[in-house]
Simulated scan of single mutants.
Amino acid sequence: MDIENSITIRRAKLTDREELLALYLTVYGDDYPLELGTNKQLMTRLLEEQEKAFWFVVELADRPGIAASCVVELEPEFRIGKVTGAAVHPQCAGLGLSSKLIGFAVNEVMAKAPSINTLYATTRTVTMASQKMLISNGFKPLGIFPNARKIKTYETLTLMGYFREGVLDKRTPVQRIPPSLVELYLQTNKSIGDEREIELVEDCPAFPKNIAHEESKWEFIQAPEFVEKRFNEVFQGDRESTFYPFHKPNLLISNTVLGVEMFASFNKKDHYCVLISANCPITTINGHFKKLAFAFKEIGIYYLETLVRIDYFEAVCFLGANRFLPSAYYPAMREIDGVAHDYVLMTRTMVPLDFSESQISSEFTPFVREYVRQWIDLNLSTVGVHL
């Protein structure tokens, strides 16, 4: 087959929805963790809101129906997008459709959405194919999400970024950084071809270990509409505190003694929780996080992550003191008044770390090695094990 002449890539239409549902079911079965290929209401919104979602499909001249699909969702306010939902029909495997589709989608979005600075994608680690395919299309490795998704087992994901030309030139210099971020920072800079020196490596301040008293209790409110309404009330006009692309809060974590309200996005199926923001600095819960961690486990949360702007030094240090590890680094993730700011992804897994079934491309080896080194130091140093 002359694949170059037989392939057609076009924008998906609402009339394609049922066929797309069938495609994702055929490709992934019941294991697909995203709503994109299973939730009709969400799919309808993405297919209709063509300025915020570019959904592309592949058709072949000698085969009826949709052969492949992918979506690029956009958050124009934050000038960022994500590539997701890549699927190729099993009968069309081996034709390179996924790579051609992603390459076309990225070029099309960058041409037709000039406000978008960067796109990101995550990949599973059951095979290396998707990692290699994204790298070949200009995506840069930025780190990992360890134990992030519960599919058949707890699976590690990779993070990659694609950057519009000139965006990385707008990065603000990193003025100080804790020792725990040095290797991740340097490796990310090497990955994106923007190597620069660190102005200052500074040790973190000490934080109290555990000062929580009996009256200090954590309550969890899982009511998506109420939580989103409360979130909008608390952060009205405050876009800095609400920066967490493609995540909406559905969980409110409250401590009335401390006056703390934390807003999170919780996926019960994966036991995965993203801490989006809080009504006060994260350091307000100094000495109370150990009790909160036990409360997370009790409601079935086994993985935590949060994004922190790299110049929020004390917040990064506080999370590190409470068993979060830096696992990915996103340069120039958000532009404000012409200046692009870096963010670090801090993660905490509460289940045993296991890479035994992971297939990870060599480009990610330095990220995995550094994460494992820090995990060993955090969890095994007291028994004399170091890496």
Rank of each mutant, 00 (worst) to 15 (best):
S241V: 02
F163L: 07
A148C: 12
K112E: 04
Y330P: 00
I336S: 02
E202S: 09
F296Y: 12
F296V: 05
A121W: 02
L23N: 01
T156R: 08
G96N: 07
G320D: 05
S191T: 09
V71K: 02
F226K: 03
F289M: 13
K290Y: 14
I301H: 01
G96M: 04
M128S: 07
E357W: 06
V257F: 02
E357Q: 12
D30L: 11
L97F: 00
I310W: 01
F231R: 00
T349L: 15
T156D: 13
E305F: 03
P352F: 03
D62R: 04
T153K: 11
S216K: 06
L101S: 15
D30G: 10
P208V: 06
D30P: 04
D238V: 01
S99A: 06
V383R: 09
Y28H: 10
I336H: 01
N232W: 02
I116C: 06
L25G: 12
C70A: 15
I80M: 12
W375G: 12
G166E: 14
E197P: 07
M110E: 10
F266D: 00
R176K: 15
P208Y: 07
H213L: 14
I177H: 01
T26L: 11
A295L: 05
T256R: 05
Y272L: 13
A68M: 00
Y244I: 01
E370Q: 12
Y303E: 08
H89P: 07
L21A: 14
A295F: 06
M346N: 10
L345Q: 04
V106N: 10
V201T: 07
A87E: 04
A278W: 01
L74A: 08
R79A: 13
F220N: 13
Y371L: 11
G29C: 15
H271N: 07
E59R: 10
V201Q: 08
T283L: 09
G161D: 04
F324C: 06
A212N: 15
A111Y: 10
E51G: 02
G338V: 03
V316H: 01
S362P: 14
